[in-house]
C-alpha cells in the first residue's frame, strides 16, 4: 500500500465495491467526475451514473427524487458548490424529507491549493451541521474514508461527507479502520495533560505534534473526531474532565466547525480551557497545499504552539 492517498481516491475505490454490493446505489456528479472520482463508479456501472452538468442545485434536487424512489444516492461535486451553492436545496429537499442522499463533497479546505480562495471551503461543516438529521463526516485518511463511506452508505438518511484533494498519510490500515464507528470519536493516542481533538486531514498533523510534545514530556491525548454530527459528547466530556484542556484542529473556519461544536459541549457540560486551530475568519489564496497550511496556521507546528499556550494557562 502506498503511504499516502487522498480521501477522494478512497471514495472512488469504495464506490466500485459498494456499487456491486448495493444494486440500488446511484451516483451523480456535476461535471467533475474525474476530480471527485465518481468516474471510477461510472467505469463499472455506467447505467447507474448520471451527470447533471454544471448545475449543482438541480443535481441535489434530482438526488432527492431518486432517493424518494428507493435509491441510495451519492451525489458529488466540490465542497464549495455542494455545501454553499446548493445549501438551501440540501436543507429543504434532502434534509427536510430526510432523504437517503449522501452529499460526498471533495476538494474541501485550504488544501485545494493553487485554485485559490474561490474554491477553498471553510464553511461547509458549519453549514451542514445546522441541518436537523444530517450526519456530518470528515475522514482523516484513505483507509478511514473507505470504512466511513461504507457505514454512511449502509445507514438510512442524509449525510455530508467531506473529502480532500491532496494525498494524506495513512495511519489506519484495513484492520484498524474496522474499529472506526460512525458517531464515535476514535482515541488514537492516550494522554493525560491535554487533549487534541482533530478532524479530517488535521489528524495527521495532530499526531506529529503529539510526538514532538511527548519529547518535552507533555502527554497529549489525540482523538480523531471523524464524525462532526452526531458528535461524540461523551468522549469530549471525558477528555475535558481528565485532561482539563482541549485543543481542536480542523481545516475549516474556527467559526462554526469542530472547534465550535466542541465548545458547545464543554461550555454546557464541563467548562475547560480551549484552543482552536483552524482558518481564522479570512479567505485563502493560491499556493501549494503545504505552503497554505503553514501560512494560515493549520500545521503540526501550530498545534504544538497551541498546546503550549494551553499549558501556560
Amino acid at each position: 500500500m502506498a503511504d499516502k492517498m487522498a480521501t477522494r481516491e478512497a471514495y472512488g475505490k469504495v464506490l466500485q465495491e459498494l456499487g456491486a454490493e448495493y444494486p440500488n446505489l446511484v451516483v451523480l456528479d456535476a461535471d467533475l467526475s474525474g476530480s471527485t472520482k465518481t468516474g471510477e463508479f461510472k467505469k463499472v456501472f455506467p447505467e447507474r451514473f448520471f451527470n447533471f452538468g454544471i448545475a449543482e442545485q438541480n443535481m441535489y434536487g434530482a438526488a432527492t427524487g431518486l432517493a424518494l424512489s428507493g435509491k441510495i444516492v451519492c451525489a458529488s461535486t466540490f465542497a464549495m458548490f455542494a455545501s454553499g451553492r446548493a445549501f438551501e436545496i440540501i436543507r429543504n429537499s434532502i434534509g427536510y424529507t430526510h432523504a437517503n442522499v449522501k452529499v460526498c463533497a471533495t476538494h474541501a479546505g485550504i488544501t485545494v491549493g493553487e485554485d485559490g480562495a474561490s474554491h477553498q471551503t471553510f464553511e461547509d461543516l458549519a453549514l451542514m451541521r445546522t441541518i436537523p438529521g444530517m450526519t456530518v463526516v470528515n475522514p482523516s485518511d484513505g483507509a478511514s474514508a473507505k470504512e466511513l463511506l461504507r457505514q454512511v452508505v449502509a445507514m438510512e438518511g442524509p449525510c455530508y461527507v467531506r473529502l480532500g484533494r491532496a494525498a494524506v498519510p495513512f495511519f489506519y490500515d484495513e484492520e484498524s479502520a474496522k474499529e472506526i464507528k460512525l458517531g464515535k470519536g476514535n482515541t488514537l493516542r492516550e494522554g493525560k495533560d491535554v487533549t487534541i481533538i482533530a478532524t479530517g486531514i488535521m489528524v495527521s498533523e495532530a499526531m506529529k505534534a503529539a510526538e514532538e510534545l511527548a519529547i518535552e514530556g507533555i502527554d497529549c491525548r489525540v482523538i480523531d473526531m471523524h464524525t462532526i454530527k452526531p458528535l461524540d459528547e461523551d468522549i469530549i466530556i471525558k477528555a475535558a474532565k481528565e485532561t482539563g484542556a482541549i485543543l481542536t484542529c480542523e481545516e475549516h473556519s474556527i467559526i462554526g466547525g469542530l472547534g465550535s461544536a466542541v465548545a458547545e459541549v464543554t461550555a454546557t457540560n464541563c467548562p475547560c480551557q480551549l484552543y482552536m486551530v483552524g482558518q481564522r475568519d479570512t479567505f485563502g489564496e493560491s499556493g501549494s497545499p503545504e505552503a497554505l497550511k503553514a501560512k494560515y496556521g493549520m500545521t503540526a507546528s501550530d498545534i504544538y504552539k497551541g498546546v503550549h499556550v494551553l499549558m501556560k494557562k
Binding site: E47, Q57, N58, T64, G65, L68, S69, I89, N92
Partner: peptide, 25 residues
C-alpha cells in the same frame, strides 16, 4: 403528499429525479 415543497423550483427538480428513477427501474 409525495414531496415537501414550499421553496420554489425545488419540487420540479425533485420530480426529475423521480422520473429518472422510474426510467431506471
Amino acid at each position: 403528499i409525495e414531496m415537501s415543497t414550499g421553496s420554489l423550483g425545488q419540487g420540479f427538480s425533485v420530480s426529475v429525479g423521480m422520473a429518472l428513477a422510474n426510467k431506471l427501474d
